[in-house]
Design a protein around this nucleic acid. Structure first.
Lengths: 130, 130
DNA sequence: AGTCACCTACGAAACTTTTCGTTGACAAGT
DNA sequence: ACTTGTCAACGAAAAGTTTCGTAGGTGACT
């Protein structure tokens, strides 16, 4: 029997920044994460450390404490988190219509051919099973 | 010459709740807004008042002080705000790809026929002008 | 005039988020 | 043994968000 995780809290902006790095690069130490963030903006090492400690309490990440430097890994997947935030955004911004969000996003930005193909495919799927 | 508004700050969650009501129902007093919010959740009258005072400082709303009860109206349009938040979300959650956000939103939710039509139309437009 | 109803303004408490300094542990190099 | 570098833990400051109590003003009704 598949056990569900208790619903994870919504990550804050700074927390999401760390999760993005973890999803892209895999499990990492505080130093790894600090270096990755420091490329984009100035932030102290202990700020990243504290963030990760809070994220561990919240259940957003887990850590392996075997070695000297702990290794952090995300608990939720990127997909799950994207879904959670997209759903919340569609509720708060488009009265719950994810499709309205999609339409808005689409009419806003350059879209690659590959993405256009994917969208057409998705729409075909939706058409077949209403 | 069209003057641009200085970029409005991102509304907080509670602020967005009030803006949604203003966009839907038009300019309103504190009482109007409090009543509308109180339908969904318990909140004190002065909490709404304070929020609106802060939003006025931030430039998110303007108020007419002519009568006894001030009348508040949104400064940014719903579209502008949606675009701002969708863009920020696509940056933080999909590496800046609004199309990826659209795809994700679309694959998640029931979509009405009308929305499907609109999406197909949008995609056709995009195809014609790459 | 006194009271009631309704309004804004203000301050501040409670909470969350972000940031970082300080401390103490531990190991590697001198 | 001592110094240096790296690490986690902790506390706390600073800023932002959300909530509401209290005070003071104004007009209407008795």
């Amino acid at each position: 029997m598949m056990r569900h995780r208790p619903q994870l809290p919504r990550p804050t902006e700074a927390e999401l920044e760390l999760l993005n790095i973890l999803w892209e690069k895999g499990p990492a130490t505080v130093r790894d994460l600090h270096q990755a963030v420091a490329v984009k903006r100035t932030i102290g090492y202990t700020s990243v450390l504290k963030l990760l400690q809070i994220m561990t309490e919240k259940g957003l990440v887990e850590r392996e404490e075997s070695g000297k430097a702990h290794i952090y890994r995300p608990v939720g997947t990127q997909q799950e988190t994207q879904s959670q935030l997209v759903r919340e955004m569609s509720e708060r911004l488009f009265s719950g219509s994810a499709a309205a969000l999609a339409i808005h996003a689409l009419s806003m930005e350059p879209v690659s051919d590959r993405e256009l193909e994917e969208l057409r495919h998705l729409i075909e799927q939706k058409r077949k099973q209403p």
